[in-house]
Design a protein around this nucleic acid. Sequence first.
RNA 1: GGGCGGUUAGCUCAGCUGGUCAGAGCGCCUGCCUUACAAGCAGGAGGUCCCCGGUUCGAGCCCGGGACCGCCCACCA
Length: 871
Amino acid sequence: MSEPDERSLKERTRFDPAEVEPRISDAWLQSGLFHPEADGDPAENYSIAFPPPNVTGDLHMGHALQASTQDTLIRYHRMLGQRTKFILGTDHAGIGTQMQVEKQLAREGTSRQEIGREAFLERIWAWKELHGSNIVDQLKRLGASFDYAEERFTLDEGYAAAVVAVFVALFDRGLIYRDNYMVNWDPGSRSAISDLEVEEREVTDTLFSIAYPLADGDGELVVATVRPETMLADTALAVHPDDERYARLVGREVILPLVGRRLVVIADEYVKPEFGTGALKITPGHDPNDFEIGRRHGLDELSVIGEDGRMTEAAGPRFAGLSVPDARAAVVAALDEEGVLRASDPYTHVVPFSHRSGERIEPLISLQWFMRMDELARPATDVVIDGRVRFHPERWGRVYRDWMDNIRPWCISRQLWWGHRLPVYYCDACEETYVSATAPERCGVCDGPLRQDEDVLDTWFSSALWPFATIGWPDQTPELRAFYPTDVLVTGRDIIFLWVARMIMMGIEFCGTQPFSDVYITSIIQAPDGRRMSKSLGTGIDPVEEIDRHGADAVRFGMLAMSSTQDVRYSAEKVAQGQGLANKLFNASRFVLLSIDPDATPHARPAAIEDRWILSRLARIQADVTRRLEEFDFAHAALGLYDFVYGELCDWYLELVKARLAGDGDVEDRVAVSSTLLFVLRETLALAHPMIPFVTEEVWSYVRRPGEGLLAGERFPVADESRLDPVAEAELEWAISATQAVRGWRDEVGIKPKVVMPVRIAVDGHAEVIGLLARMARLSLVGESAQTGPAAPGVASVAVPGGTVEVLAGEGVDLGAHAERLAKRRAALEAEIAGVRRKLDNAAFVAKAPAAVVAAVREKLAALEAELEAL
RNA sequence: GGGCGGUUAGCUCAGCUGGUCAGAGCGCCUGCCUUACAAGCAGGAGGUCCCCGGUUCGAGCCCGGGACCGCCCACCA
């Protein structure tokens, strides 16, 4: 732990995050506050499982945003006195990580196949060791109060056991099965991927029209395709059953060009008669739709494209070995040669690409493991319908339900090496299959040797267990009992299906209850120009650099202030605003600490109206921030705090009490106002702490009382409604408006700031705050000016709410531009009065609008007229 | 092809169930080194609230239509 700043508070005129943060961070980590006792039950405890970042990843803006919001919640609840656990860990991120290391191997001129599975995995583990702790350190810098003592990794031993247990259980329930089925084959990663890892992109292809001659020589059938190379695997042609043009052809045969195979013409509802020629070639082996049609009609499933994205032997000697694009060109050339190419037209459509590798998906029939989802989806949909799980904003709940209602089987096997290997064992001798948590020694039937399935599970399969596998499941650990289910899940909308939905399904299935009760969907942060924030586009902004530049509190505040129910552009200004707030709070604290009476104790001891006012305002902002946090409305919580600190505490209250603190009043009052000030400061620090923990913790060390610990472990302030004081608020509101009116007048007229203007004040009431007005607007009250009622006009009248301030002749009072300002104001008033009159002249308005509204308008008119009169 | 979100000050965004709702931060202009903060303080300028209709005494706010931007889902070769 580094030493506290030795300089006196007086010298520290600026909050210095670089000096403070490491010190505070160490203190937190050593305090044990972040590591809760595994005691009590989930209802009284509070926990959040942070979405596990990729193990080799770096902190990006999305993490910074999500960590800021979650840590704000975590710190808030910890300060409410709950046992609070913020679960941290990283994800092995199957394809992503494996591809990074494969790239590295490629640069070294080798490949994973060359070095073999074992050596490859060693390389990845080494890579993980090298890059793995990055993000955890970065999260620490942000001040995120994770339970760092219990960091998890999805490939840890215990976690792996949970994965296997889940697989076996689901297999035993018949939900996991192996099947030869059409999958999205990603030639880039050489693996099947799930539907969710596919993204549609618009491309312009060529639509080729190819003539298939009838076997009996009686004409031809022309079909359109963008993938002529797949025709080598055609097993039928199809037309719509109601299509009269082709009715006579159904059941007859055509000759497949280039190959010579005879194909039957079938009728299927799927075919759209109006598209192209209304005839469709059917390639069950290489097109998802054709696959479905083929299964309906019992067609052969041929394959001519291999898993390497090249044509196989089955494509014939002429095309075997060619890449798909090359094969396409060759097939087209051959068709042309054969005289069956009828047309080629540009055609723009959307086609699937791998989200991971970026390569075009090659639909293939492949032997893979699948998981049936419908049965698990039902209860997982119910919990959202009946509100046991609530989405924020709500609309995402509907998106979730739509997807769940149409859920399809999930292809869970991946032809990768980095991940959880399937707990499946085959006996080659007798073709037995064993699914077991512990590897069986030998085949139970023929006693032959067993071989484990080579594949690993989709990363999201293990991620789906995150909320419970991280805290001990399948063992009934104290942690699991204390912290499952968790409370809130905070994540981006891009993984609602990939992750959120699956967690809910698995949580209900294996723990009997939903894994969290609220899902807060964060904004996606875009680059300032509105583009995606990404390293490759050069639009990325590094949160760590922002922390270096502005401080962690600033970044946290900025993130919270930016957070929204819609996507937002990164706003450096919001971060700067947060930096301003941290510095402001720090300096206000310095002022308080360096100015208060040594006998002060932190208690509300209102001795003047402004004391009652700030206590009232404090109670309001406390209630407001609390409500905002409960509603996941972080932007308003942060900005509301900002407004309170700047606009009420610093701009007005501190200024108002300076004279009293300076000691020109009586000692009693000085102690009283000092006490109130100290109280307000401490409450404000605690209120702000969940959002901006560093600066508040630092200042706390100066105001901490004996027996109190770190602010992170103290109580969050509860709004004291008995302190609400509408009278004080109204009076101060008047004083502030009047002050602003006079200041505005002074500035425009050109009265020097230092000049104290002699005035008489002609207003009714407000006696208690006229002294404040005088102080803040630099006025000296002459004669009976503090009395109520109209006073004799001075050399100029300044309108304030409910009356005027009559400026008297005096040193430095040079009216300068007063006449001009007066005329301007008069014109504005007249225009406004005309508007209000028009409204009141409208009989319908007076008749139909609520009486209170009409009265308010009348009052406004009277006030405007009074002001005009005074001028 | 369905669905969702957005369009408010030069920029980034707030504006709850329709009546001080036309706001904030930044930027800009003016004046102040006022004994917490000059990365500060005080004051100020700046908006046909995307367009067209409608409902209403009254509409950024409700309804209908349209334009543009963005996102999600989807098996038309």
